[in-house]
Amino acid sequence: MVKVKAKAAPMDNPAGLFSYFGVIALMMLGFYIVMDSPNLVKKMVGLNIFQAAVFIFYISMGKVAGGTAPIADAAADLYSNPLPHVLILTAIVVGVSVTAMGLAIIIRIKRAYGSVDEHDIAAADAAADTAADTAGIDTAAAPPPESP
């Protein structure tokens, strides 16, 4: 919540800081899903929400009160700051790559384990650990079970 006291933040006018409240709410929602949901796809969605909150934070930061879109115009003399928008364009690309990578791994997890649930995977891994320790079988050599 402390982020509310950002630069030039008029603390006597909390309503003017609504974008920060939105950002914090979204960020915590996304983060909670990442930590709590056992479903890997939902975890990925949570991560996306978490990142989207940061994107909105950047975009709202570039707004200059009374400024117009940063396109040169004879009628305007005050523009919003376009740099945060450019930065966040890069960060969105990074976010998309992370999502693509994550989903690709989830597909392979589904094929190898037959599940996208964290608990199932942890149980299968634990079973593989103990089986390998007692029987001395190289689990790597065992063919992965096909998805149903």
């Binding site: 890997l40 994550g102 791994i105 989830i106 190898a112 384990y113 995977i121 891994d125 689990t139 992965p144």
Partner: peptide, 8 residues
Amino acid sequence: RRCLSAAF
């Protein structure tokens, strides 16, 4: 296959 959950 455990490399996948580790990578995730």
